[in-house]
Amino acid sequence: MGEPILSVRDLETFFRPDEGIVRAVDGASFDLYPGRTLGIVGESGCGKSVTARSILRIVDHPGKVERGEALLRRGDGRIVDLVAIDAKSAEMRDIRGGEIGYVFQEPMSSLSSFHTIGNQVVEAIRLHRAVSAKEARDRAIELLQLVGIPRPEQRVDSYSFELSGGLRQRVMIALALAAEPRILIADEPTTALDVTTQAQILELIRKIQADRNLAVILITHDMGVIAEMADSVSVMYLGKVVESGPVDTIFHAPRHPYTQALLRSIPSVLAEPRSRLTTIAGSIPHPYARPPGCPFHPRCQNFMPGTCDRSAPPVTRLDPEHEVRCFLYEAPAEAVA
């Protein structure tokens, strides 16, 4: 696999509204490789989007990246820590869109209804490439063609509300790819779409990834999407990556009780690839009321009183690529970093 293009370590992003503190991301670590897809999966509210936004440093107020690092290997070989550089700096803006493209969940509200889609795609191109308005427009039309929009010469002048949901999401992908980034973050790119369109969009992402050797972070709450798309998987629960490993390991030898519960909640991964996760016992705790110890313990079938509710379980490396955060697998003291 070579060197990772993006390496996230112990990332912490907190929201500090007046009411308290929300540890939206509470120690997330993962690696991303060119040409591969990392799936980030977990129930709604577990911090997937905030993790992705932390990487681009576009977390909404009052959120703040507090700790950790996100090491990006730039096109020229330099390694920059996205957590350390100024979110307003020219370098960060250069990376946004230029190195990392972002596809959002809501294709309707993520596009301006006062500007044509061409206007927005051209803007994205010219922010990162010194091309004339005419060239940028031609490129925009090519991009719309590439993402499978029919009659792109005409669509380039339409508004987002004149397109169907599927076409809008294709525009979002074109927008994210406008400046030829090497990383694509797709945050629930198909959640708002019907099943047929979902499959088409996933296929499109896969095709573009193969053509451009893109590194993809695919965020979803849908294990079926993970099974179809991901090479490796990070399972998140309440801001923490609780288990990570190659997709086969996660599906066939899951270790964390939460991963197991996620998989059990799908009747059959192969028969119904896009089932939703709905049937894990209990509900996600309120963000202000994080359980002490292992945050999953109130819902865990393997809960060990006196251990799991006392302190947070450390990360255990089961094999070079498989890690789990659970007391059931706690390694001998000297192995824990």
Partner: peptide, 20 residues
């Protein structure tokens, strides 16, 4: 969300705000 999208493509903050 369209504001975040504009930010995510690398638009400087004041242009994000004034344009969208």
């Amino acid at each position: 969300p369209y504001v975040t999208t504009a930010r995510a493509r690398g638009l400087p903050e004041w242009r994000v705000i004034m344009k969208y």
